[in-house]
Nucleic acid binder design. Structure first.
Ligand SMILES: [Mn+2]
Ligand SMILES: [Mn+2]
Ligand SMILES: [Zn+2]
Ligand SMILES: [Zn+2]
Lengths: 163, 163
DNA sequence: GCACAAATGCTACAATGTTGCACAAATGGC
DNA sequence: GCCATTTGTGCAACATTGTAGCATTTGTGC
């Protein structure tokens, strides 16, 4: 870490970091190391991440965060509608930022590489009507199949579990 | 149990039991106590059941089955395409019989009573196209909201977790 | 800086599955 | 019906994912 006090401590993610702090403070929460770090990780990812992936990402960046604290930070982000939970194929929740408010998109679970990707262009829809008396709060659509990478004939690269 | 050898041992579920045994044998599996019992429970239920609910149902009928054996029986049924796994809202799998082969229906998760119901009339659909290169094996649609029972104004009955 | 509420970091514990392995039981051929 | 073979079972131990309780620390407003 550069100790130069006249320059911003972290060059490119500074703006991100700033707005992460603002976002947290705006919700009336305390700006803590873990909340900021988790928010940064989620912001940097274009796919939903589970607790373990987030933990590894932080650990990889040399930051250690307590397991329980991480769970609690994620719970708080979901409570505040900053993030959402996505049901995974294994039985671990995945988390992603709510990027465009109110926008619901489908997810794709690749049965080959195991990744879960956001299909920003695909919205859940129902073919048939809800039985009377039922009220709908939210529709969750998960497609299972093979992703483009795994379908590509030029094998060689094993797209296995690439974060 | 009536010991009369000229009459079927179990009056109403005999047909069920018979075809459960046949179904299992037809897949080349051994007809065991647990597989038959689990199949009967699934057949009798009109909603997906998790491991614990199945275990309770059996226990309630005076039958004890080992936890692990139950898991393995369920795994086998899924492998054989006799049953399917349905992702639950908690992190336990639910299981249901494949009743009409190839028929995919949506599920409804009531956020009030916690039940997961089959919406046999509703099929998953996508609004928007799959990105090129992707191939789809199966679509899974889960609707979240309040079921008819929970929406009914005549409260009194707490529809909580009724099997 | 101080006070105080809000978060953290432990340690335990709960829920849901999975693995390995010795033993039992279902099946098919006699 | 009996035996041999193969398939499942039952148990104990372990793995993963998440929660609860509680003493200690930290962020915030003054
Ligand atoms: Mn997404
Ligand atoms: Mn169903
Ligand atoms: Zn893939
Ligand atoms: Zn309900």
């Amino acid at each position: 870490m550069a100790a130069n006090p006249s320059a911003p401590a972290h060059p490119p993610s500074a703006a991100h970091d700033a707005s992460a702090r603002e976002l947290i403070a705006a919700r009336g929460g305390r700006v803590t190391r873990t909340r900021v770090a988790v928010l940064e990780v989620l912001r940097a990812s274009h796919q939903p991440l589970n607790h373990d992936q987030i933990c590894s990402a932080l650990e990889g960046a040399g930051e250690h965060h307590d397991r329980v604290t991480l769970y609690r930070a994620l719970d708080w982000l979901v409570e505040q509608d900053i993030a959402t939970r996505v049901a995974g194929s294994d039985r671990a929740w995945k988390f992603e930022l709510v990027r465009h408010h109110g926008h619901r998109h489908a997810h794709f679970h690749c049965q080959r590489c195991g990744r879960v990707l956001c299909l920003e262009e695909v919205e859940p829809a129902l073919c048939g009507a809800l039985p009377s008396g039922f009220s709908l709060a939210q529709a969750e659509l998960v497609l299972h199949g093979a992703c483009a990478d795994c379908n590509a004939p030029e094998a060689g690269t094993e797209h296995q579990a690439c974060l």
